[in-house]
Design a binder for these strands. Sequence first.
DNA 1: CAAACGGTTCGACGGCTGTCGAAGTGTTCC
DNA 2: GGAACACTTCGACAGCCGTCGAACCGTTTG
Lengths: 202, 202
Amino acid sequence: MLADPSRAAMVLALMDGRSRSAKKLALDAGVSAQTASTHLRKLVDANMLVWQGEGRSKYFRLAGADVAQAVEALSTLDVPRALPAAARELRFARCCYDHLAGRLGVALTERLLQPGNTVLRDLGIDLAALESSRRPLFRCCTDWTERRPHVAGALGAALLQRYKDERWLAAVQESRKLVVTSAGKSAFSRLFDLPPAFFAQD
Amino acid sequence: MLADPSRAAMVLALMDGRSRSAKKLALDAGVSAQTASTHLRKLVDANMLVWQGEGRSKYFRLAGADVAQAVEALSTLDVPRALPAAARELRFARCCYDHLAGRLGVALTERLLQPGNTVLRDLGIDLAALESSRRPLFRCCTDWTERRPHVAGALGAALLQRYKDERWLAAVQESRKLVVTSAGKSAFSRLFDLPPAFFAQD
DNA sequence: CAAACGGTTCGACGGCTGTCGAAGTGTTCC
DNA sequence: GGAACACTTCGACAGCCGTCGAACCGTTTG
């Protein structure tokens, strides 16, 4: 399924976890509407996408976190060669389906795994509630830009949600890119013990 | 690369992390030697396999843990449909490149993530030494049989090595399957607090 | 040295599938 | 009601690529 360039482009365009119309996906992939329609049908039949009708439009999104993780894992294989310019701006912070990825995601994950840290408690993340959800609490994606793990799963999703609610991170229109607000810089520095210079990489 | 059935079969046959000759891989994939040769060349060019000459034979193996993880992540996508009979025996315990996967891998991972456990200390795993290695200490694969995470990365490899050294697990010839020895059953039950009935699933 | 064997290269065949034009269905908007 | 629009289906074309037979190279074995 992912071997075809058009389908790959569509799936990559949906890697932010949001929905897109068939027409927009056709534009993303650079093919006609008919071609896009056949591809989208195949992806839905393969349980990789789901759709939702809204008026005369059809909005598609990834079927689940497992699809996103597979794409991310595949991306790590091709990446040793230089990153394309378009991907350059995704290096620092982006969303990977429903959680945080990129240098920031990897750095926060490393701090989170250090024994003795109290970040989750400080953030008021209710682990017990998350564990009761059916999806795995903890999972790692291998970051395709950093080639190191970042937190995914229910915990990863809850953390990104919190960051957005607190206005520490903001989503960029039509992109997976996330920007760190000034409030976010000070909050991340404080909670995760990151040097202020870290954010100069963005 | 993985979209072709022959190449997929070859890569799957190498998922145990060991090496196989070109001829054996041709048999695994059910194609002629010429066809296998072209596929293997492509896989090497794509940095997914590496090879090593030995006499008039050529032995291939996976290029790294990232390849194995991508394959494992992709496998989770198609698996909702019933498992092929050949895969049935891999459900309980198998090696995934260099670490433990399957029901046992998932169960041990869950115990390992419970706060307050002392398993790593009891096993005498030297986390400091592992951290100094270049590869990430901690990573998760999403298990394609269980659809839940299991420990990979340097820690996952060190754990499997320890289990083998202790003769708790034994590799099955020409297969990814791992069998739990009777010493292993009692050791896992004790260290990870698993009920003895757990091993009846095997 | 000759035979056997593992692997590779070349060339030709054949099938699969991605592509778009054209036409059709259902929805929205004026 | 009619025009514009989003999406789908059908059909035909074209190109890509997996496949194997045949021939070739290098190593091993008797």
